[in-house]
Nucleic acid binder design. Sequence first.
RNA 1: GCUCUCGUAGCUCAAAUGGAUAGAGCAACAGACUUCUAAUCUGUAGGUUAUAGGUUCGAGUCCUAUCGAGAGCGCCA
Length: 547
Amino acid sequence: MYKLSNLINDLENVLQKTVGIEPISLRISNNPNFDFQINNLVKFQNHKDIKNIENLFSEIINNEILIKNFEITDTYFVNLEIDIDQFSNSFNKIKKYIKVQHPETVLLDYGGPNIGKPLHVGHLRSLNIGRSLYLIYELAGHNVLSDIHMGDWGMPIAQIITYIEEKKINFESIDIEDLEKIYPKASKLYSEDNKFNDLAQANNKRLNENDPKILKKWRKLKKISTKSIKETLETLNHNFDLWMGESDVNYLIPGMIQKLESEGKISLDDGAYVSNFVSDPKILITKSDGSYLYLTTDLATVLNRIKLNKIDKTLYIVDKRQNLHFEQLIKSLNYFGFGDEEYRHIAFGTINDLNGNPYKTREGDAKKLIDLFKETSLQIEKINSDLDSETNKILTNTVLTFSDLKTNRMTDYKFDLNKFTNISGKTGIYVQYALVRAKKLLKSSSINSSNINLKVSDLDENDLNLIRGLIKFEYYFNLALKNNEPHHLADYLYELSNLFNTMYQNENILENKEESIKLNKLKISEHFISYSTLLMECLGLEPVEKM
RNA sequence: GCUCUCGUAGCUCAAAUGGAUAGAGCAACAGACUUCUAAUCUGUAGGUUAUAGGUUCGAGUCCUAUCGAGAGCGCCA
């Protein structure tokens, strides 16, 4: 924690001189009387110098002005209570405290949507998690780039084009509805009909060889698809810095293959290039007819990115079923020596229906995101028909985002629209409501809360609980940043909202006859508003003004 | 067949690197509105963390086995 970094350093120095290098981490205290705890001493409880260490710790902590009270238990848990009086002037500097010391350039690859397929429920988590990580990294001071990374190349495209050719469909009149119907039919035919399969393979090869006739058709399809995807993204309040696709790196592949072969990193196996890196299963780089695979384009994409920008870290926000692919990709990047940047697969689980099966429409197709949006919007309208359309839209996106981000990303979870739009419970609606209440409170008070100074001696239990909740911001922010896990912040936002509601509900603040108590509560509300707003920013939620 | 992931309250989910008494929400039950917005709040109840062993000061977390669930396995992405 920023404000306590000197304390942590001093304590680490003590440990280094006695038991060796031992990085200290501050955790949230289990004991309700304290704010933070340090567990590092527990494992040294039988160490010969433990009494000495305990004394040194006590002395150092005693001198820390930010610590009001502390204890070292007989099992050597160190519990710390923050001095709110000393801490309270830090609340409005939180944005400064969460900045990292060494900013990096971070690229987020969304393993994006495919041409011909609409954005569907399967894309929701990648969008939500990606956007949240983008905002978290940005708030931490990093340089962030997002790339939708369209699936605009390879077999699926060849299948669609082949289908259109075979069925003699007029290319000029095709719209997005046609395209979305063609895709599943083409892919079905591809797996069932050998002749169609051959034709599609041939088209794929032509595509890779940049045959102008097929490229023209491809361009047309890409344009239709991109337009539709952009519309949906706009509704869902998502956007991207880069709209690169697999097609953008096609031209790099022949040179890449040649170079890898001459370096002895890959070799032919039944006509296909295979990595010489020993692994099971073997890593296939190209198909036996020379055409390219998922991995081929992903490798070339990295080469392309290195060429265009200096990137320190690449995060692939793609579902966990593609684990093997990214394992192979990262192994290959290292083995081929494509730069020493950091690459990570930010995997996530699937969204399932109430029976635990992948979320589908009644017809068995993947459910379109735009339809999910409409259904959710309708549900919110049913609950409150007085909302203007803009507020309804923001609340709809809040529901679709918060319900998604509150679960650990690796967990498969069940999407339950009724539950997620429920008027009570741990929902996006709830956190919005708490913030609206707080803002209305300050407005009704007609007092400029920035001029208020907290009077700590007059704080009651509810006030203290909320303030001590606010102190944990850095902890949860860093946890989310370090582990690429936004759900910690979603959970924390609920916790703060709940603490605020408890304070708010307990008594009528504006009618409190004790002026200092009233002012205290207004000041705390002001802090809550700024923290809640900041957390919403981290999660990609837009606050509503009324609801 | 091989590899990987998972199993926590009736249900849906938390619990960073192993740390103190495993926490929330929903549902259930009992209370609080002539209101600063009750889309809220307070309280009660709910657990042998799938099972059996092991590692150690300490295990939901690590190891082994068993049972159960899911996913992935060169020429889709």
